[in-house]
């Protein structure tokens, strides 16, 4: 089974976001960038399927030269090949078009993603890639079986669960819970440093999204801090009813 796992490079979840001088992006000084946490599940799932069915796992990202660090993380986990489509600050549409083009030039049975990239949280690239390639697509999969080209998958939806059946070739995005990603071992991390990374020229496609400005939300909060006496609890209930009017 030939598997493509698409990954993205995002600020660590512990990052306190500040706006850069351009007023429309985040300041990257002192920000640690990591392999998108949901993509770890996708890489792990690719490796497990390869271990069961044979084949190979290719990891792909669209970004600047700095994105090779997350490709090396995936290589250290066990991916066979890595490719970087060099395009600085692409929007999600450009990412989708470029991934689709790469997939057309190769032959994959499965194209895997994390359910969302935790920078723009748009959940947008997997369905776009599926549509561009005219493939079936399952998103936010939390549990599945892949046997003889047939896929049975389960996912959470608002207030419930759904089960689907579909067939390879397939585009899928996976969710926390599908597996427990392995930690790369030190010798593998060292070996990954010298593995080749294929660099690819991007497809010429215009971005759709133009960011005009970015700001840190400032919600005015009341900051009424009370103790834990019975009177304080009664005061809290009164405030929620009469001041905030939420209960």
């Amino acid at each position: 089974m030939n598997i493509l796992v698409c990954v993205s490079r995002v600020p660590d979840t512990a990052t306190k976001v500040k706006v850069a001088d351009d007023g429309k992006s985040i300041a990257t000084q002192n920000v640690k960038f990591i392999l998108n946490p949901y993509d770890e599940f996708a890489v792990e799932e690719g490796l497990r399927l390869r271990e069961q069915h044979g084949g190979s796992v290719t990891v792909l990202t669209v970004g600047g030269q700095e994105s090779t660090d997350i490709l090396r993380t995936a290589l250290a986990m066990g991916a066979d090949k890595a490719a970087l489509i060099q395009l600085v600050n692409p929007d999600s549409y450009q990412v989708a078009v470029n991934i689709a083009q790469y997939a057309r030039n190769h032959s994959f049975d499965l194209i895997l993603f994390g359910r969302q990239s935790i920078d723009f949280d748009s959940f947008q690239v997997p369905p776009m890639v599926a549509q561009l390639l005219d493939l079936p697509c399952l998103t936010i999969v939390s549990q599945w079986s892949v046997t003889n080209g047939t896929v049975k998958a389960e996912r959470d939806i608002e207030g419930g669960k759904e089960e689907f059946e579909t067939a390879l070739p397939l585009v899928a995005s996976v969710q926390k819970g599908i597996n427990e990603p392995r930690y790369p071992k030190l010798p593998d991390i060292i070996k990954a440093k010298s593995k080749p990374i294929e660099t690819i020229e991007p497809v010429a496609v215009e971005p759709q999204l133009e960011i005009l400005s970015m700001e840190i939300p400032q919600t005015e909060r009341r900051h009424v801090i009370l103790g834990d006496s019975d009177e304080d609890l009664e005061k809290l209930i009164q405030l929620l009813r009469e001041e905030a009017k939420v209960i």
């Binding site: 600020p11 429309k24 935790i118 999204l209 133009e210 005009l212 970015m214 939300p217």
Partner: peptide, 11 residues
């Protein structure tokens, strides 16, 4: 964006 740590205005 960034799980609500920032908000963008975009076209």
């Amino acid at each position: 964006v960034y799980a609500g740590k920032a908000i963008i205005a975009a076209q």
